[in-house]
Design a protein around this nucleic acid. Structure first.
Length: 480
RNA sequence: GCCCCUGUAGCUCAACUGGCAGAGCAGCGGACUCUUAAUCCGAAGGUUCCAGGUUCGAUUCCUGGCGGGGGCACCA
């Protein structure tokens, strides 16, 4: 069956060749987007014809009529345009070729003349056509689109081809990236590029991907964050830097996690975590305004700010600062959560993710976290045991994380040593000791606020998608 | 790692309690000079994900495997 469909298309390919036509020519210069044809002739009356010539190109998406006049739909990146093929214009041979040798899914170029049909649709009368690429496989269903989720993820080109909303989503994603860059550029940040292949990974708590450099004969890690290199740029005096790119974490897949994902981190000298909260709020509001937001999340309203302590206390009645040791906190939690073999900071995190996070639908900053899970954040100026850190949530998902950055090299050393103890106990997400980074702090890093914003999750919020796989062009999959 | 759901024609989907595996679109042959999910006529198109099992008989029930979706666990 499939073989028959392919054989029919191959036979047409050979027929084109035997007629002296190259089914894969090298270029087709002078093409206009089809949207330009629509706008140029918006004022035409029904049935009115012009002598205005246009050259367009795209994929043949539909065909109606097989007789001496047929209508075809051409789709390009700007939209859809109806073509009117007339035997009295093309002549019998070319008309026949357009209707029989050219298949749905083929890429074709059209030289035509604008008109509005009697039924009122802006169209292009076909004066000449050029096969630009013969499609040897059939396109997805023209009016059901492509529904199969697995095929949409494994063969995104078919999703893009068949589903308008898929194209819209990835265009919106591109606009999001552009808007983020513009907002940071306009605020005086410079974009830098730091190593993806790192001798030592750091800046987050996660398992890395490991690889090997043959010439240097050494292990390298794909970065889990850009944080430490960006802080070294701050030490060097660049003062406002950002990097937007992929991070890699060797952990489980979920609707919120892809092993490679896009993050923008920005660092601002002489700012603290309150300043960068304002900056993120302004930045995301600006991005949402430029890209548009279709979901229930309202980025316009001032974002709510609540301390982690109050957020958990409001939902559970538990004040974790009043239960400063593991057993006391576990007793307060009782049977609401499993507490065996959970450490104190893990229990705090469990309370957040179970009782608080799902309700954080509108944009919210949750402030002031326990020090144990934040080895790069500066101690809180007034709350012992806490650090100046916030996470931003919307749609029940964390989208950003920020600190007043730790710039005391001696304390940073102690934090690394604490992480090393965790690693010795078997924690494979503990941060490795990075002496080069500590020494850079010993040269003096100004007080600095830093933010990491997940681009994938921001796009999920802007386009109301519940799975990260919907907003990543080619998500990680098992072998088929 | 665990739990639930799921896999049928190129695409979108049917098939009741186990009883000959079907439709629309696409494709193929034919008609058609204003269609737009074009219409009409005709003929085709299947390893029902894979391997076993139960049964006279399995798309259907059972076991295992593979893929996918969701959830739990894990998670800057």
């Amino acid at each position: 069956m499939a073989d028959e469909l392919l054989a029919v298309r191959r036979a047409k390919l050979e027929k084109l060749r035997s007629d002296g036509i190259d089914p894969f020519p090298h270029a087709f210069p002078g093409v206009e987007p089809v949207a330009a044809v629509h706008t140029a002739h918006a004022g035409l009356a029904d049935g009115e014809e012009t002598t205005v010539a246009h050259r367009v190109a795209g994929r043949l998406a539909a065909r109606r009529g097989q007789g001496k006049m047929a209508f075809l739909d051409l789709v390009d990146r700007s939209g859809r345009l109806q073509l009117q093929a007339r035997q009295d214009v093309l002549g019998p041979e070319l008309h026949e070729r357009l209707l029989t040798q050219v298949d749905l899914g083929d890429i074709i170029g059209i030289d035509g003349t604008a008109l509005r049909t009697k039924r009122g649709e802006i169209s292009l009368r076909v004066d000449a056509f050029t096969v630009l690429a013969k499609a040897l496989r059939p396109p997805p269903s023209k009016h059901h689109g492509l529904q199969d989720v697995e095929t949409r993820y494994r063969h995104r080109e078919l999703d893009l081809m068949a589903n308008e909303e898929a194209r819209e989503l990835f265009i919106a994603r591109a606009k999001t990236v552009t808007a983020v860059r513009r907002a940071l550029d306009d605020a005086g940040f410079i974009e830098v590029e730091t190593p993806v292949l790192q001798p030592l990974y750091g800046g987050a708590l996660a398992r890395p991907f490991t690889t090997h450099h043959h010439a240097l004969d050494r292990t390298l890690y794909l970065r889990i964050a850009t944080e430490l290199y960006l802080k070294r740029c701050i030490v060097g005096g660049l003062e406002r830097v950002y990097e937007l790119g992929k991070d890699f974490r060797n952990e489980g897949l979920s609707t919120k996690h892809n092993p490679e994902f896009t993050m923008v981190e920005f660092y601002e000298a002489y700012a603290d975590y309150g300043d960068v909260a304002d900056r993120l709020e302004t930045l995301v509001r600006s991005v949402a305004a430029q890209v548009g937001s279709v979901g229930a999340v309202d980025f316009e309203q001032p974002w709510r700010r609540v301390t982690l302590r109050d957020a958990i206390r409001d939902k559970t009645g538990i004040d974790f600062t009043a239960h400063a040791d593991r057993d006391s906190l576990a007793a307060a939690i009782g049977d609401r959560l499993p507490t065996d073999e959970r450490t104190w900071p893990q229990l705090v995190d469990d309370l957040l993710s179970t009782f608080v996070e799902p309700d954080l639908q509108q944009p919210t900053f949750v402030l002031d976290y326990p020090v144990q899970l934040s080895p790069f954040a500066k101690a809180h100026r007034s709350q012992p045991g806490l650090v100046e850190r916030w996470e931003a949530f919307c749609g029940g998902v964390e989208i950003a994380n920020a600190f007043t950055e730790l710039n005391d090299p001696d304390e940073q050393r102690e934090r690394f040593e604490a992480q090393a103890r965790l690693a010795a106990e078997g924690d494979d997400e503990a941060a490795p000791y990075d002496e080069v980074f500590v020494q850079s702090l010993e040269h003096g890093m100004p007080p600095t606020g830093g933010v990491g914003l997940g681009i994938d999750r921001l796009v999920m919020a802007l386009r109301d998608r519940s799975s990260i796989r919907e907003v990543v062009l080619f998500p990680a999959m098992r072998d088929a």
